[in-house]
């Protein structure tokens, strides 16, 4: 497990004149920055869209980001931790801790609706709900046909499978249900 902790002097963001407790505003500000951190392998999605960020904890000037990997061997986790750190440092945060947890186990059900929409527009078929019928074929992101076939359960990254559309013949990635 990776625990990174920097002990620089703090530079809390300046929040004035609001009834929201300062820590809550601090937390919201951090979330809005995390929204700007893209997933390195599917850059159209933010790490929030993907459901990787499980929690943000704020104590005084300290901020702790709790993240979970999509797959055990996800090589992007180190890059994601670094990107989060860079983004927060860019906005003046200095006391940052990033913690990786394994439970609860990540599921594609945590992907936001907005994230699924963005994936589809990007040309990747979004995951179905894991409770749905697995036999239902993903729709072609190009022509929207449901007449598609599986080419390979393992695609260009661990989280994707390769499909092909029987109508427009275009091969496409499907974000695997997990």
């Amino acid at each position: 497990m990776q625990n990174i902790n920097t002990d620089f002097k703090t530079n809390p963001i300046n929040n004035k004149a609001s009834q929201v407790p300062p820590e809550e505003r601090f937390r919201e500000a951090v979330f809005s920055l995390l929204e700007q951190v893209p997933d390195p392998e599917v850059p159209v999605l933010s790490i929030l869209d993907l459901g990787i960020v499980r929690d943000v904890k704020v104590i005084d000037d300290k901020v702790e980001i709790i993240i979970t990997p999509t797959y055990s061997g996800c090589p992007a986790m180190d890059a994601i931790s670094m990107d989060i750190r860079f983004k927060l440092i860019e906005y003046g945060y200095k006391n940052i801790k990033i913690t990786q947890v394994l439970t609860p186990v990540w599921t594609t059900d945590w992907m936001t609706e907005n994230g699924k929409k963005k994936l589809l527009e990007y040309g990747i078929a979004p995951p179905k709900r894991s409770t749905n019928n697995e036999d239902e074929m993903p729709k072609c992101p190009q022509c929207k046909s449901a007449n598609t076939k599986l080419l390979s359960q393992f695609g260009s990254t661990a989280c994707k499978a390769l499909y092909q559309c029987n109508d427009c013949k275009e091969p496409f990635d499907y974000f695997k249900c997990h």
Binding site: P69, Y71, G73, L151, S152, F154, S156, A158, L162
Partner: peptide
């Protein structure tokens, strides 16, 4: 495709 499949499985295993 199968080269990718076996290496993806292997990536899971190393994780």
């Amino acid at each position: 495709e199968q080269d990718i499949a076996i290496t993806n499985i292997t990536l899971d295993l190393i994780g």
